[in-house]
Design a protein around this nucleic acid. Structure first.
Lengths: 146, 146
DNA sequence: TGTTATTATTAGGTTAGCCTAATAATTGTT
DNA sequence: AACAATTATTAGGCTAACCTAATAATAACA
C-alpha cells in the first residue's frame, strides 16, 4: 500500500474536518474547503475509494471508512502539532499558522514530528516552562513584530 | 514572473551547492545530487534558462546567472534555518535534519521563516539562552530519544 | 588518429492533479 | 407532476515532473 500523496492526504483531512462540523459531507463541500473544482474531487475520491479509505455512493454523501478515519486523524494530528507550534509558541497569527501547518504537515519525518510534539507538550503541560518560554524566547517585541 | 516550483527550487539550490564544492557543474552532477536521471535535469534546465536563472551551453557546464545566484541563496538560506533548528536546537540527527529541511524549505511563508530564524539566532547569539534551552526545553532524555 | 567510454540530448511515454464544458441525477418549487 | 435549480459526474485536455531507450557530442586513450 503506497503512501498517500500530499494531495490525497488533504482530501482525507478535509473530509474528516467537515464531517465533524456538519451532519453530512458532499462533494461540493470538499471542493469548497480545498478551493478546487468538483470534478477534481471526484477523481480523488476514486483513488481514495480504491484504497478503501472513503465510502461514496454515486450522487450521495461521503464517508470515511474505519481505516480512513484512522489515517485522517493521524494527518490531522500532525496539522495540530504545527498549528500549536506556530500559533501557540511562535505566536504567529492564527491564519498564517494554520496555512503553514497545511503546507508542511505532509512533509516531515515522524522523528521530527515527535521532536516538535515533545517541545509543544512540554510547554503546554508546565505553566512554569510556558512563562519561561515567553519571557526569554519569544518576548513581546518579537511576537508582535510588524 | 511566476514563482518557482519546489522542484525548480531544488535544482537551483543543487547547482549552487555543487558550484561551491567543485570547480564546474555538469548535468550528471545535478542528476546525481537530486537522485534523478539526466534527461530530467535537461528539462528543468530549459525552464530555468527561460527564466534567466541558469546559463548552459549545450554539452557544456552549468552556471547560475546573477539573478540565479540570488534566488538560490535565498532558498539555501531557508534550508539552513531549518537545518539549524532541527539539528542544532531539537538535536535531531544530522541526516534527518537535513532531509526534513529539504522537504519543507519550499513550503513556508516568510512570516513563519522569520519567526523560526528569530528563535535560532536568539539562541545562537547567547550562551546563556543556549544553556537555558538545553537544560529546560531539550533535556538529555529527549534529545537522545531512541 | 581512430576507437571506446563517458556524458548530454532528444524523442516519446506515464502519472498525478488540476481544469472546462457538457451531461446526468437529484432536489426543491409551484 | 412538471419544471427549474442545484449538485454530481463524465469526457477530454493541459501541465509539471518524472522515466526509458535511442542518438549525438565530447573526452580519453591506445
Amino acid at each position: 500500500m503506497p503512501a498517500l500523496s500530499p494531495s490525497l492526504e488533504d482530501y482525507l483531512e478535509a473530509i474528516l474536518v467537515l464531517s465533524r462540523k456538519e451532519k453530512v459531507v458532499r462533494v461540493k463541500d470538499v471542493a469548497k474547503s480545498l478551493a478546487i473544482k468538483p470534478p477534481s474531487v471526484i477523481g480523488a475520491l476514486k483513488a481514495l475509494e480504491e484504497k478503501g479509505l472513503v465510502v461514496h455512493e454515486k450522487y450521495g454523501y461521503l464517508e470515511l471508512s474505519q481505516d480512513g478515519i484512522l489515517q485522517a486523524q493521524k494527518i490531522y494530528a500532525r496539522h495540530e502539532i504545527f498549528y500549536k507550534f506556530f500559533h501557540g509558541l511562535l505566536r504567529l497569527p492564527s491564519a498564517v499558522a494554520s496555512e503553514d501547518a497545511c503546507r508542511i504537515e505532509h512533509h516531515l519525518s515522524s522523528r521530527t514530528m515527535e521532536a516538535i510534539l515533545g517541545l509543544v507538550q512540554l510547554i503546554e503541560d508546565s505553566p512554569e516552562l510556558r512563562a519561561l518560554w515567553f519571557s526569554r524566547f519569544v518576548p513581546e517585541e518579537i511576537r508582535n513584530k510588524k
